[in-house]
Each structure stands twice: as structure tokens, then as C-alpha cells.
Amino acid sequence: MTVLAKDSVAQPADVPAVPTFSEATGLWAKIGLLSFGGPAGQIALMHKELVEERRWIGEERFLHALNYCMLLPGPEAQQLAVYIGWLLHRTAGGLVAGTLFVLPGALVMLALSSFYMLYNDAPVIEALFFGIKAAVLAVVVEAVIRIGKRALKNRVMVAIAVAAFLAIYVLKLPFPLIVLAAGLIGWVGNHFAPGLFSGSAHGKGNAAADRGGVVDLMFERGELGHTV
């Protein structure tokens, strides 16, 4: 594989410069503080901050990395944060991203749980936590819709997603079995109908989101040529 020289690819006007370590640290802390709604909400927030607003990573690479993280044991949202942090600032970036992804939320949960244990009998507190549960549910639904619009690019992908939901929610099938079945369908489908199963089958209106970001430009320049 030919590795491009770092100066062989010009900096596009619409792609920001590589963020400094302090800028990235601030963003990971922000994501850690605002990541409500579990993995769905966390991933949606990272997509909004990293792909849509700052363009530190492109849409396709973000979803590609997310697919791999979902196959690994452990929390996929944190794994995704560690990977992107590592791409931007290598080992230090990955460590900071992974730590700040969980530390602020853990401190907030500690404070809320302590507060609840002390004042859980008060009607106002019960109403407060009831409202929080409803708000978190709304965050999760919005996150699923946001990511679904990006990842499910045609009716075949939507059908597979619906079938997977029914399999895990209605039929109670094991998650690994569902993943293997979906992978097998994708592998077979790519041979017989590659246009429907390839990553290039974008939905309408996603052209702007498909533009590359900082990490993609680093790959083009050969700065991450050794990275899988």
C-alpha cells in the first residue's frame, strides 16, 4: 500500500484543523456530563458533536467504527469514544476519552443516588425522579431515530432492523444469534444484491453528512496509514 506524504493532500476549506489535546479533552468531558439515556443517547450525542457540528470524523467512518464496537464485549459507546480519541491523539487521547466518558456521569449518579437516599420520601423528590425517567425515555427515542436515519439507508436495512427487534423483544432470541444471522444475511446479500448492502447506498438528504472529517483527512495524508 502506498503511503501518501503528509503534505500531498491539501487542507480543504470546509474541514477544520486537527483539534488540540485540550480541545478534545474539553469535548470528552462535555459528552461525559451530558450523556443521558444510555448507549443510544451517548452515541447520538457523540454523532452530533463529532460528526455534525465539529466534523472531527466523517459519517461513514463513525458508523463503521460503531458497527465494530457493537460486536465487541463491553459498552460500545465507551469503546467508540476511546477509538476516536485514540485516532485523534493516540494513546493519551484514548485514555482521556475513555476516562472522561464515564467519570463525570459516575459522579453525577453518585450525587443523585445519595440525594435520593436522603430525601426519597419527599413527594417533590418522587415527582422529580418520575419526570427524569420520562425525559430520559424521550432522549432514547430521539437518539434511536437520529442514528437510525443515518445507518438504515434503504428498505432492506430497515426490514433487517425490524426483524432483529422482533427477534430479541418478542421471540427472546439470544443477541449473539441475532448478530450472526444479520451478518449472514448481509454477507449473502452483498453477493446477490451488492447495491442494497454496500456502504455506498446512502439515503436521500445525507450528502452533507457523508463528507469526511478531520480523521478522514488524516488517513488521506498517511498520518494514520498504519491504523486499521
Rank of each mutant, 00 (worst) to 15 (best):
K172C: 05
N190C: 11
K172T: 14
A182D: 04
L180A: 14
A182P: 03
P174C: 00
G195S: 01
G212I: 09
G213F: 11
S200Q: 12
G203F: 03
R221T: 10
V214Y: 11
G205M: 10
V214M: 07
I178S: 08
D210Y: 08
A209E: 15
H202I: 07
L184S: 13
L171A: 15
F197G: 04
L217H: 07
K204P: 05
G203K: 11
D216V: 07
L217Y: 11
V179Q: 11
G186A: 06
I178A: 11
K172I: 00
G189S: 02
F197R: 03
I185A: 12
K204D: 08
G186T: 06
R221I: 00
P174N: 00
H191Y: 10
G195M: 02
A182V: 12
W187F: 05
H191M: 10
V188Q: 04
P194H: 06
L180Y: 06
A207H: 11
G212C: 02
G195F: 04
G212Y: 05
N206Q: 15
R211G: 12
F192P: 01
N206D: 14
M218L: 15
A201Q: 08
G212H: 02
L184A: 13
R221W: 01
F175H: 12
G183W: 01
A201P: 02
P176M: 05
A181K: 02
G199N: 14
A181T: 10
A201V: 04
G189L: 01
G186I: 04
G212T: 02
K172R: 15
L180C: 08
V215K: 05
A208C: 06
L177N: 08
I185G: 05
L173F: 13
G203I: 03
L171E: 13
P174V: 09
V188L: 14
G189N: 01
D210K: 14
V188A: 06
V214S: 10
H202T: 11
G199L: 10
N190A: 14
A207R: 12
G186L: 06
D210I: 13
H202C: 07
L217I: 09
M218W: 02
P174E: 00
A208Y: 09
N206Y: 03
A193G: 04
V214T: 14
F219T: 12
K204F: 09
S200Y: 01
A182W: 03
G213L: 13
A208K: 12
P176V: 04
N190L: 14
H191W: 08
P174A: 00
G199R: 11
V188W: 02
L177I: 07
G189M: 02
D216H: 05
L173I: 12
S200L: 09
V179R: 09
D216R: 04
L177P: 07
A201C: 11
G195D: 02
V214H: 08
L171R: 13
